[in-house]
Design a protein around this nucleic acid. Structure first.
Lengths: 155, 155
DNA sequence: AACATAATTGAGAACCATTCTCAATTATAT
DNA sequence: ATATAATTGAGAATGGTTCTCAATTATGTT
């Protein structure tokens, strides 16, 4: 299958190749899906959407691809408490910008919020620094998330 | 089996009974385990330790009990990223005090920290309030956690 | 103290997201 | 065009957790 020179050629393929990994139709399909279909997609979501573009893709490949992209830092893997990982573009050309999540524990709706992000980032940076020093950890990531009931589920 | 009137009688049994649930040897064993064996135990950990006190206990019962205690607010269920839930007493008579977690993604060591807790709580409270108002969520809980490599794993 | 009844239990089966296996295919450097 | 290692699809396997169900038991009532 011919690889189209799309907008991905510029931003992601280089990163993939840089790690000695190959550009394949399956990876391209996943990339397209992630940039088209919004945030917090489950592997199954990605599989279904990618199948439209590339009908032969297998679910295992989707998992492997998402794992690779996560390792390369292109994708964020989220846990929103329902035993299914969710994926979205990490900060970068296709990303929505740094945000955190507010999750409804009843209907599983996920709201991305950016309110208080500056204060959060300041505190997170400060905490990371303090914890690194005190406990000797090299901190790589954090999770900050709120759970509750959305308006519809609360009533 | 006779239920001993131990220190739990005062703090937890009332809570359990208050919800129309019964005090049983299995629940007592889990309670003892949680108060004796430290933090962030997996269900399997709780099962093994509780089996010593009450050899007939079943794993399913441990899961059910931990779920119940979590629902009653006595226990916190944590996800530290390794596909096994972990449990510990929530804030209360037996709890260690409010803390957050620093997790080594290599050896899975978990450090409880309380540094910056005041600032964190302030920000969390403020954020919860802001998000409640803006998005109409009734926020019930939050997760704030750091991932990285501990000193031993980093080198 | 024994009864009635609904809650609880243990054991194993079932579930289900994810990972693994392996032979076949394919991207890429030469 | 070729060689080679990476990648793939399909289905099996994994493993933590939940479910099922008949048997047991805690608790309020007599």
């Amino acid at each position: 299958m011919k690889i189209l020179k799309g907008h991905h050629g510029n931003c992601c393929c280089g990163k993939i190749r840089g790690f000695g990994r190959r550009i394949t139709p399956a990876r391209h399909a996943v990339l397209d899906t992630l940039s088209t279909r919004g945030e917090h997609l489950t592997a199954e979501d990605v599989f279904k959407a990618s199948s439209r573009r590339y009908p032969n893709i297998g679910l295992a490949t989707v998992y492997r691809t998402l794992e690779l992209f996560t390792k390369l830092g292109m994708v964020s893997k989220l846990d929103t408490g329902d035993d299914k990982a969710r994926y979205e573009f990490a900060d970068g050309p296709h990303a929505k910008g740094h945000h955190h999540h507010l999750v409804c524990t009843s209907c599983r709706r996920i709201v991305d919020y950016t309110d208080f992000i500056k204060e959060e980032m300041d505190l997170l940076r400060k905490t990371e620094e303090g914890l690194s020093k005190k406990y000797g950890f090299k901190i790589n990531s954090h999770v900050m998330q709120f759970y509750g009931l959305c308006r519809d589920c609360a009533r």
